[in-house]
């Protein structure tokens, strides 16, 4: 197997000793089948044990290793070095987030927003177990299945120009998760979630740049979820206007 030596430029930031982020370059001999994460692991194991980055599954399932690769948000476990041009690769922490250390970002803002949209099934009354499970047809499952594939890697937040401008914006992944439960035939929580998402900080801060859907490594298509929510929220707004709205809160 052929080796290719690359210059891996890594943004470093160690809060106890660095005033601001800086770039450290490592020479990494890469195998043909390596992804960017393999190069980082090589650095950590062989060149510099102090380098910090998140990873777990190495197979685009866990969502831990999202980072900026040559300026684009991507999973480092899914980005093959052979697909990147030139022999210099730049990795940086996801943009739009505070840096915790090196390539590790502070996710608190997203976690708080994720909880706010109530991403779980809400029932007016829960069905007794004796009545059996909530059954769902393949067509009902298809309505939301795509949106369940989100792994919270936050690439969409790094890509979103609106989140960059407006930190209060709930943002693509959290809104998509709200839509995922709204579309679930077992769920009855639309009204509750609407109070959170049909706000200026919710779906209405989205300007439909579509960057979230372009970078999403799982093809979740958050932009489509948000536009669908805009349509249903608009219909409900007009219904409320002419007095046909559902229950008032």
């Amino acid at each position: 197997m052929s080796h290719r030596t690359i210059d891996l430029e890594v943004m470093r930031y160690r809060p106890e000793q660095d005033d601001e982020p800086w770039v450290q370059t490592y020479k990494v001999p890469c195998e043909e089948d390596w992804v960017v994460l393999d190069a980082l692991i090589y650095v950590k194991d062989n060149l510099d044990g102090s380098l910090s980055y998140r990873w777990s599954c190495h197979m685009a399932v866990c969502g831990s290793c999202g980072m900026m690769i040559n300026g684009e948000p991507a999973l480092s476990c899914k980005t093959f070095i052979r697909d990147l041009p030139g022999d210099v690769i730049r990795v940086e922490p996801l943009t739009n987030f505070p840096i915790e250390r090196d390539l590790v970002v502070v996710m608190d803002d997203f976690i708080e927003k994720l909880q706010r949209v109530k991403p779980y099934i809400i029932r007016d009354e829960s069905k007794p177990i004796s009545e059996g499970e909530h059954r769902q047809t393949p067509a009902q499952l298809k309505k939301f299945k795509q949106y369940t594939l989100c792994i919270n890697c936050l690439c969409c937040y790094a890509a979103c120009p609106q989140y960059a401008l407006i930190p209060e914006f709930i943002g693509p992944a959290a809104l998509t998760l709200a839509h995922r439960y709204n579309q679930d035939s077992r769920d009855q929580g639309w009204e509750e979630r609407e109070d959170v998402v049909a706000t200026n900080e919710g779906i209405w801060d989205c300007a439909f740049a579509d960057a979230c859907s372009i970078v999403c490594p799982k093809h979740v298509d958050p932009a489509s979820a948000i536009q669908q929510m805009k349509i249903s929220s608009t219909l409900s707004w007009y219904k409320n206007l002419i007095g046909l709205g559902g229950k008032k809160r």
Binding site: E194, T234, W237
Partner: peptide, 15 residues
């Protein structure tokens, strides 16, 4: 957080 009144302008925009 109050629900937004943007649906008015957005619906005209979308149409």
């Amino acid at each position: 957080m109050a629900r937004s009144n943007k649906p008015l302008v957005w619906s005209l925009f979308a149409a």
